[in-house]
């Protein structure tokens, strides 16, 4: 026995009927089994208004199963690999729709099966197959995390990134603090290896200048600001790089934009903080007191695919 549902209405019940004839059921399932790419997962195709798919369900637990025929599937779904062949099988089902079903369903009170309905379904199916609608995929939002917020980049408003609640306690304990540096903090990845730009990808530099550290960090996957990262890279960080250029090649330092409009950082094995060398909350890494780290190199995004070590 098969339950057939034409998924096409929004308010009233969809046209539904039961195929109880064993020979008809077997013939239809055999046709489905012989074809390839005709079935799709129910609800996987077009889900907007109008004709969407024909749903087929095997409703008895003791039906002989045919290979390659799922227990429930959709025909004429835009998710089917061969929509044309799938549509032809759907048409065959609809053309055989009973005009006065022997098996009465509650849905028939509001959606009675009749010749007019059958014609309407066939017309809509033909329109649908002639110009299949595009599948609407809702924008994937990252999972809710109360410690993170997605914000638009004020320098390039088409880009977004995530800012986190300032959480120095995570870093400032004896087992974590000495083994993680500014790069760990800015990327927000505790490696316990005193991470170095590029080291995870064999691109570490011993020359601590803007261009060399930038190249090393980009080997890890960082991208320059305003090269927007997709939501698949969530959570995305905004990082800032500076170097000590008073004695070229000495050292570099990184900052991370935090929730609340300020920047956090972790000087070497010292404590994570959100203040500069003058003890002022950092609202702009370009102008804050950075001691000897006078060269501002630029801003970068770091998505989830950025691996450091």
């Amino acid at each position: 026995m098969l339950r057939i549902e034409i998924d096409m209405f929004s308010g009233r019940p969809n046209p539904i009927w039961i195929i109880s004839d064993k020979a008809e059921t077997d013939r239809f399932l055999a046709a489905v089994a012989e074809a390839t790419g005709v079935t799709a997962k129910q609800g996987a195709g077009f889900t907007g208004l109008g004709f969407r798919e024909v749903r087929v369900d095997l409703i008895a637990d003791d039906e002989p199963r045919k290979r390659r025929v799922p227990q429930q599937f959709a025909l004429a779904s835009t998710a089917a690999k061969d929509l044309k062949a799938s549509g032809a099988l759907a048409r065959r089902l609809i053309e055989a729709m009973p005009i006065r079903s022997e098996i009465q369903l509650v849905e028939h009170a509001l959606t009675p099966l009749n010749a007019k309905l059958r014609r309407a379904i066939l017309e809509r199916l033909a329109e649908y197959l002639g110009d299949p609608p595009r599948i609407y995929r809702p924008k994937r939002w990252p999972p809710y995390n109360p410690l993170r917020t997605t914000i638009k980049d004020e320098k390039c408003t088409t880009c977004e990134y995530e800012v986190s609640q300032f959480n120095p306690g995570f870093w400032n304990n004896p087992t974590v603090q000495p083994k993680n540096n500014c790069y760990n903090y800015a990327r927000n990845w505790r490696t316990d290896t005193y991470a170095q730009p590029g080291r995870a990808h064999g691109a570490q530099t011993s020359i601590m200048q803007c261009n060399t550290v930038t190249a090393a960090a980009m080997a890890d996957g960082l991208v320059k600001r305003c090269n927007c990262l997709p939501t698949s890279e969530w959570p995305r960080r905004l990082m800032a790089l500076v170097v000590d250029n008073q004695a070229p090649g000495f050292d570099y330092h990184w900052y991370r934009h935090q929730r609340g409009g300020f920047w956090g950082h972790k000087p070497g094995g010292g404590a994570a903080r959100n203040v500069d060398n003058s003890n002022v909350v950092i609202t702009n890494p370009e102008t804050c007191d950075r001691g000897r780290y006078n060269a501002f190199c630029g801003y970068f995004y770091a998505g989830r695919s950025v691996v450091i070590n």
């Binding site: 170095q196 730009p197 972790k266 070497g268 094995g269 780290y293």
Partner: peptide, 9 residues
Amino acid sequence: LDVFSGRPN
């Protein structure tokens, strides 16, 4: 010598 931030001291 505690002086660096990025590279090891």
